[in-house]
Nucleic acid binder design. Structure first.
Lengths: 248, 248
DNA sequence: CACCCCGTTTCCGTTCAATGGGACGTTTCC
DNA sequence: GGAAACGTCCCATTGAACGGAAACGGGGTG
């Protein structure tokens, strides 16, 4: 009846809602469930899914099951802005991981969160909350701190202005102090914040203008003893990554 | 004038054309160039880009520059069908890479091509044509052969029926024989085909029904001497990956 | 400085592709 | 065997998408 888009959203909006409706851990969704999650009428969902599946962006299985398609992954990953970063960082991340035998992660800043681009984890290493393509708020991740501490003053100002303590744990002034301390030291550390038994340490990957384009971090157990050597190792690797980025 | 879609393609088609228009190596495109590549009128391109940028799927810079957005990468990579595979395979790939100090790659079958999901390369290792999110035809990649040699007979039949020699190098019967040989041996090898100086070797990652869900491969120089040990090492790793996939 | 050129952005009347309620076929569960 | 849930198809309605035209802006040239 209501012709084009009763609810005032465009086709683009709907498509985005559709692919965003997939939760991170689930690989397959029922059509009706997808419709509900995306907040779209079943019929509309059905039509859009069929169209998207025609391009391989989604794949449909028997019984109305839907899952993200390989072609979508391909299209996005071959042109992604993170690809060059990942390529440059990978060898260094592996080196770090070999030496420490613990989790290594690579993140970029997006909005007021750290977006994790890559993670190397090892059997036997401590738990790591950072998932690939996962996010963490700036102030409860060492990656986030390392990233924000090396940004424009203007951006930091905007961030602190809108800063609202999620659990009331941190006041705005404490947040500001934490950033300043991180910038002064040249690395970020969070002891037992993300996870009570782990210690997160991250350093910025700086560009020519000394702004962080990424962060390189590790998650180690609280009793890790090699802290003195750890930060220099990370910083060396971060400089290596920066150099490779500048070359390309 | 011509209202909705003069050329008979839907909005979905256009969006796909838009994100597919980005070449793999270029990160930023001019709006007009994007329009031309996508085969869309400039005005339409502009409107769609603005909408997509509103969701963060694309990002616009000053002067009408457009690049893929972080949010797109995030959405796709957190739900991608390859994520579980990648997570399961990564540790084994690193092991192989450490031991051989050469390129390691992971691929899946999509259509009549091998789609490379992950690649670990090392400074000093030989050239490797396989890019992450890149494709290679089945018969000129060891990964492709390993994948197709362990599929349903029906699928293999369809593949061989439509098989057309790209350069006339390979007849259909030769292609069939190559697949059979690969299946018999349990691994695929191509000597100097992809690149005159390199040797590609790949083994299938098999599921419970003995079908290949992925392939694990290496690219080594022609003079590599450890071939005897190489295939068993790959096969062991492939079994390890299969076990981890089955567990989750 | 005035001019031009080329790409981006906005405007707006036309129109057809997108829409979604309804109905039907199929499977699953009680 | 009946009912509930789900996927699929149909189709009249209509406003969102379309794109030509024109305005805007900025960078280079005579």
């Amino acid at each position: 009846m209501v012709a084009n888009s009763a609810s005032g959203d465009s086709v683009v909006d709907r498509i985005v809602r559709l692919i965003a409706a997939f939760p991170q851990d689930v690989h397959t969704l029922q059509l009706s469930e997808l419709a509900e999650r995306a907040g779209l009428p079943l019929t509309t969902t059905h039509r859009l899914v069929r169209q998207l599946a025609g391009h391989g962006l989604l794949e449909t299985g028997p019984g109305g099951t839907v899952r993200p398609g390989l072609r979508l992954w391909e299209l996005v990953n071959r042109t992604s802005p993170t690809l060059a970063l990942r390529q440059a960082a990978m060898p260094f991340m592996e080196d770090i991981q070999q030496v420490l035998n613990q989790n290594v992660n690579l993140a970029v800043l997006d909005g007021w969160e750290a977006l994790f681009v890559e993670r190397l984890s090892r059997r036997g290493s401590v738990a790591n909350r950072a998932q690939v393509a996962g996010r963490m708020p700036i102030h409860i991740s060492s990656a986030g701190l390392a990233l924000m501490a090396h940004q424009d003053k203007a951006l930091q100002g905007q961030y602190l202005d809108q800063f609202a303590d999620p659990d009331g744990k941190l006041t705005r002034d404490q947040a500001r102090a934490l950033l300043a301390e991180t910038a002064r030291q040249g690395f970020a550390q969070l002891k037992g914040i993300v996870d009570p038994d782990t210690w997160g340490i991250a350093v910025p990957v700086l560009n020519r203008r000394q702004h962080a384009v990424a962060s390189l971090g590790v998650v180690v157990p609280l009793q890790e003893m090699r802290l003195q050597a750890l930060v220099p190792a990370l910083q060396t690797a971060a400089r290596g990554i920066a150099r490779r980025l500048a070359d390309s």
